[in-house]
Design a protein around this nucleic acid. Structure first.
Lengths: 147, 147
DNA sequence: TGACAATAGTTGCATAGGCAAGTAAATTTG
DNA sequence: CAAATTTACTTGCCTATGCAACTATTGTCA
């Protein structure tokens, strides 16, 4: 099952990478447009959601979950703190780590983000059958797992 | 076929956006690793390919094809010119536009890029049947067209 | 034709992210 | 238990990208 694409005949424009990039860009652009009124960008909403849903509670965990750089994460969190969406508290048990919490304003953001995500997906998946959506999701999941 | 995702019950972690982001990140990371030895990044290879394959011949065309910002494009081209991969020539017929050409070094890059793309895809699509690849590609294409 | 608009590209400014070095706290180990 | 290592986060520096303002050139049309 290796050697699906042969470098001698492979036309990048017709390869999977190309549509993947196109699809991703379409998705990101739509999402940013949808979230602009709330004054948060694509990285910031992901942090809010991960905190709100308990997928991460510290900067390090966020980095893992989001495959994000620690330095960049510090600054991302700085911005969210400035905007009053999160709070940092040094953990007593292990004073290296910093516990992250959503402020009320941060929590209030969650339903809006979820709404925005649903709006975008509903629009981009117009014409897809439930089965096709499941397939797309499963195929992408397998691709990601091959990383 | 609208309202596929209901904001009240929608779990972003299980939505399509999430796997799409994961798949894209996996792809980009793999590709950058593969291209690092050639001293070009993900934006730069796309320019080289688009020029090599005649999909664009000027900065403006590249911006359209790549959905890229004109200001950023200028600087991207600056870097490629510094590295000796492209050449800029002001068009005589319309002195506003600048014709872009690959230098021999730039042309030499194409097969390496294609090889890298094929390598990455072959690895990430391990375990996929030809039919599954066609499906994935078609579904992503439809999603992108809904933008 | 002469003012106005449109187009192609560039530059300044601001934000974002990666990498590597640095700091502080905890853990391991000899 | 002191030194070395590891972990968690931060900071400095560099590159990348978007936006808006600007220049130069071409096109429109009254």
């Amino acid at each position: 099952m290796a050697n699906i694409y042969d470098p001698d005949t492979f036309q990048p424009r017709e390869g999977l990478g190309y549509v993947l990039a196109r699809a991703r860009k379409t998705y990101i652009l739509a999402l940013e447009q949808e979230l602009a009124p709330h004054d948060i960008n694509s990285s910031q909403w992901a942090v809010i959601l991960n905190l709100a849903d308990g997928h991460a509670g510290t900067a390090g965990e966020l980095c893992k979950v989001m495959r994000y750089n620690p330095g960049a994460m510090t600054r991302l969190l700085d911005r969210l703190e400035e905007k009053g969406f999160i709070r940092r508290t040094r953990t007593e048990a292990d004073r290296r780590t910093i516990q992250l919490e959503l402020t009320p304003a941060g929590k209030a953001l969650r339903p809006r983000i979820v709404q925005a995500l649903a709006n975008v997906l509903n629009r981009l998946l117009e014409g897809f059958s439930p089965d096709e959506i499941r397939q797309l999701q499963s195929l992408l999941g397998r691709l990601a797992s091959n990383g």
